[in-house]
């Protein structure tokens, strides 16, 4: 770990101003991802701005009938909120499928969205990795890639986004609220939040440097049956091989998002439209253009089969 300086921000304005002042700064929230990466010198900020105690820890009803989730709401608190459990069951289930109780107590809503990939080569600074060190190559391509992306990847990077929460947020059409250093606020639909790797896999979101996430909002509840099925090699405390999040209505329509297949939670509107026709049709639309390698090709049939199980379960 490189030496760094640290300050704690009391207000959103102070946090963004501090970022503008400092060189090579990073916000830190729960620290459950950033600290690990700093210890391994995958991230080497010179200055940390602790945003974990900003007054962004509330979940409020919005005038539109949805919820505004403060960026610092802990994963545990979000998952156990009665409104979330009642109206956004998919989100609650996705959250508790992730990490462990201790980690969820620390992890924040913003931090969860911004957690970085679990590609093992990204974690080993001896290995080439375009995401960690642009231009060095991608060790996963042609290497161990059983866990990697099957769609949306590039020749520069085949990493997945590991978040469970983000899959639910995507299916629920969440939006990300931010403030930049100049104090300018904007709202980014989650569909537009993550950047495709292309030739710049180190750039993962559309956030500008120093742009602080203040909240994630959910539109008003859509009803339906909410199911999150996370498939993994062991029963708990593991990242998803793939995951399937659905909201299915009585008439068979609904929405579906996938985790573990790409650089972002994967949702395709044409696939949503196929839901009444069943898993095969939905998967074909969702994973149209998929380019798996030989170790992760199983993810395609796995998505279809998992989705079939989930849809059967939704029917009851």
């Amino acid at each position: 770990m490189k030496s760094f300086t640290y300050e704690r921000a009391d207000t959103v304005a102070a946090a963004t101003a501090a970022f503008a002042r400092a060189k090579d700064a990073r916000f830190i929230a729960g620290g459950t991802n950033l600290l690990d990466l700093m210890k391994l010198e995958i991230e080497t900020p010179a200055h940390l701005i602790d945003v974990s105690r900003l007054a962004l820890d509330r979940i409020d009803a919005t005038p539109e009938g949805g919820l505004r989730i403060g960026a610092m709401v802990r994963n545990t608190d979000l998952a156990s909120d009665t409104r979330v459990r009642r109206d956004y069951g998919l989100l609650s289930r996705a959250l508790v499928a992730g990490a462990s109780g201790q980690l969820r107590n620390k992890a924040t809503t913003a931090g969860n969205l911004l957690q970085r990939t679990r590609c093992p080569y990204f974690y080993d600074t001896n290995q080439p990795c375009n995401k960690r060190k642009p231009g060095t190559g991608c060790a996963a391509i042609g290497g161990f890639h059983r866990l990697h992306a099957v769609i949306g990847a590039s020749d520069a990077c085949i990493a997945t986004h590991p978040s469970d929460m983000a899959v639910a947020m995507r299916a629920l059409d969440a939006s990300v609220e931010t403030v930049d250093a100049a104090g300018k606020a904007r709202v980014i639909p989650i569909a537009d939040f993550y950047r495709a790797p292309g030739t710049t896999p180190h750039l993962e979101t559309v956030l500008a440097p120093g742009e602080l996430i203040t909240a994630v909002t959910l539109p008003k509840p859509v009803g339906g049956t909410h199911i999150y099925h996370k498939v993994r090699d062991r029963a708990s405390y593991a990242f998803a091989l793939i995951s399937v999040g659905v909201v299915v209505q009585k008439d068979g329509t609904g929405r579906v998002a996938l985790g573990g297949v790409g650089y972002k939670p994967w949702r395709v509107s044409a696939a949503d439209a196929e839901l009444p026709r069943g898993a095969k049709a939905v998967t074909a639309a969702l994973l149209d253009g998929a380019k798996p390698g030989h170790e992760n090709a199983y993810k395609l049939p796995l998505v279809e089969r998992t989705l079939a199980g989930v849809l059967a379960q939704a029917k009851g």
Partner: peptide, 10 residues
């Protein structure tokens, strides 16, 4: 994280 051994749930 990468080398999985059984957890309680297993």
């Amino acid at each position: 994280a990468g080398y999985e051994v059984p957890v309680h749930a297993d």
